[in-house]
């Protein structure tokens, strides 16, 4: 028993030699060991703070650092290159990031289509055997153009093509066009991925654009009103852009220009009313004369047949009716034309 007591006492004496590592706090401090952070919500002693600021702050900080270190020293440790290393847990304090969280890459138009249709990429062989050259030729990339040049050192001119046309130049042109198209599609994909509203008309800035594109842009801009540019003022010597695709660029060309307007509408309507009100009856002179003649004749007949029978007058009446055509023209026979005005309907039967 004596030995045990002795050891315990010795340890107690040892501990008394050193200052304590235990800190008492009214409210518990919040430590974030992963961030090596300590927040002390306890009230400050304002009186001591005013009297002896620096010492008070140092003591306060010392206590909090001691609490943090006590916690860090209890973490699992490792030995790395003769150093003792404590493994820190993940920090609980969340700090703002530098950039947004990266999302998945947007699919290109083709990739989207291929995914919908279930089209899978077929892997091409790196080299193909060429029977003309009698050797293996790369499908793409390094030395492919070289092999093609060897193979197509002469080109056939088709019958339907101008014989003076340079077929080699034509081939180069076709290739360049394909490259340009691909570049445009690539940029369209970028626009789609970034969700930018890109203008459809080609305006590259005043330094780059040529007069033709500038004119197109001006025309499109002018036509981009609710009334498709109908009421836009014209500049002197202003030229309209023409050519393929200009009309397609103007939004709403398919819709008809609005007929509702200010001054012109009123004028139009007034003209219409005028034309109706000022209508004079058309006089067919020949017909009028013939009608007059007929009436005269009927009168004469009635006078002559003062005591005569009714039959004669009837006959004369019919005659008069038949002899009076509606218009001055005689109907032409045998031409097979439909008289639309007479209201004949149906197929002409021969």
């Amino acid at each position: 028993m004596d030995v045990v007591q002795e050891v315990l006492e010795k340890q107690k004496r040892d501990l008394e030699r050193y200052k304590p590592i235990i800190v008492e706090k009214h409210l518990e401090v919040r430590n974030d060991v992963g961030m090596m952070l300590c927040s002390d919500p306890n009230d400050l002693d304002e009186k001591v703070l005013k009297e002896n600021k620096e010492d008070y702050l140092r003591e306060l900080t010392r206590d909090n650092v001691q609490l943090l270190i006590n916690e860090i020293w209890e973490l699992p440790t490792e030995r790395v290159d003769e150093c003792i290393v404590a493994k820190l847990p993940a920090p609980t304090t969340v700090l703002p990031r530098i950039r947004k969280v990266p999302g998945p890459r947007a699919l290109t138009k083709w990739e989207k289509f291929a995914k919908e249709k279930g089209i899978k990429k077929k892997k091409k062989d790196k080299k193909k055997f060429d029977e003309v050259l009698d050797k293996w030729v790369p499908t793409y990339g390094y030395r492919k153009a070289d092999a093609e040049k060897q193979k197509e050192w002469v080109l056939e001119v088709p019958k339907n093509v101008d014989p003076m046309e340079d077929m080699f130049q034509k081939k180069i042109d076709v290739r360049n066009e394909k490259v340009a198209k691909n570049e445009i599609q690539r940029m369209k994909n970028i626009v789609r991925a970034k969700k930018i509203d890109a203008p459809r008309a080609g305006y590259l800035g005043p330094e780059v654009a040529d007069s033709k594109t500038l004119r197109t842009v001006a025309t499109v801009a002018k036509a981009s009103t609710a009334s498709v540019g109908k009421f836009q003022e014209k500049l002197p010597n202003e030229k309209q852009a023409r050519g393929i695709g200009v009309k397609e660029l103007i939004p709403g060309t398919k819709r008809k220009a609005s007929h509702i307007g200010g001054e012109s509408e009123k004028e139009e309507n007034l003209a219409l009313i005028k034309s109706i009100l000022n209508k004079k009856p058309k006089i067919d002179v020949e017909r009028a004369i013939s009608l007059q003649k007929r009436d005269d004749r009927i009168e004469r007949d009635q006078e002559q047949a003062g005591g005569g029978g009714k039959k004669k007058s009837k006959k004369g009446g019919r005659k008069g009716r038949g002899g009076a055509p509606k218009s001055g023209k005689k109907p032409k026979g045998g031409m097979g034309q439909r008289a639309v005005k007479k209201g004949g309907s149906g197929r002409k039967r021969r």
């Binding site: 992963g34 961030m35 090596m36 952070l37 702050l57 306060l60 900080t61 909090n64 650092v65 270190i69 860090i72 020293w73 440790t77 490792e78 790395v80 150093c83 003792i84 290393v85 404590a86 493994k87 820190l88 920090p91 304090t93 700090l95 703002p96």
Partner: peptide
């Protein structure tokens, strides 16, 4: 915290803890 914490680390050398900012 953002300004002074430097970097989030997984492990720290115990003898290397030698700076306190209050």
């Amino acid at each position: 915290i953002d300004t002074f914490h430097r970097d989030t680390v997984e492990a720290i050398r115990l003898q290397g803890i030698e700076h306190a900012l209050s």
